[in-house]
Amino acid sequence: MAIEYFEPTSVAEAAALAARFGASASFIAGGTDLVIQMRRGLRHPAQLIDLQRIAGLDAIAIAGGQIRIGGLTRHRAIERHPYFRASLHALVESAEVIGGFQVRNVGTVGGNLCNASPAADLSPILLVLDATVHLAGTGGERTLPLADFLQGPGRTGRAPDELLTAVSCAVPPPASATAFIKQGRRAAMEISVVGVAALVTLAADGRCLDARIAVGAAAPQALRMPAVESVLRGAALSEAALAEAGRIAAAACAPLSDVRASAAYRRHLVRVLVPRALRRCVQRVTGVTP
């Protein structure tokens, strides 16, 4: 089938093209998911709308206590960003395990989120950061909490004519640290078997002021774990408390068995990795192993 190819140079032009063709069109950024899906016969777009010539959508801005990452930002740019490397470890740890260099050089934040894989590596940490998704379509711009944007495997709150222009979140509070741990079957070019992101904020007395946990690839979409978080808030983060957090998280997730792992193994990983991610956060805040 002949595909039509468009190279808009503005968000408005891209949205207008998408509105004109509706569900038969697809945006393309890095192409690392879409081109493979097309080759496998899973997607048959009649029109491709290439977003890479739209200027200004690949910026990372940190100002006024807010972080804003443009939708066309490449994973490699996140991985190498000095602020993230110094202060938001989990975001670097999430970006640097997406494929190899060849995928991260072209794959984008917007593509990772819009593809809406339950195993998308960026979803857990962005959920932990209470990220907001910025969408622009022919009807104007709007924002959506990421937790509402992600609606299941391959499903998002994006309308067909809308582009994901940016994702934003607040800078974590002082005395906070983040961590992301991905379990795959090999070290690189791997889809997560389970991924766990955490943020811990400690009070002056060393107790947990705030804890946020999200788990990827252990349910139809990446999930925050409010039941775990409420138990940890105000508690001393003892080994017993961390182990209990792991047990609650394992009970709260809803993993599948598939070619990569059984549901039971995924649940086991959640039980082990949630305490490990929390411990790593505490270690990063205090500089010592709890």
Binding site: I28, T32, V35, F101, Q102, N105
Partner: peptide, 14 residues
Amino acid sequence: MAVNSCSTLALQCR
């Protein structure tokens, strides 16, 4: 930049 040429469309390289 290193890329996988199998998942890059030719037209993306215009």
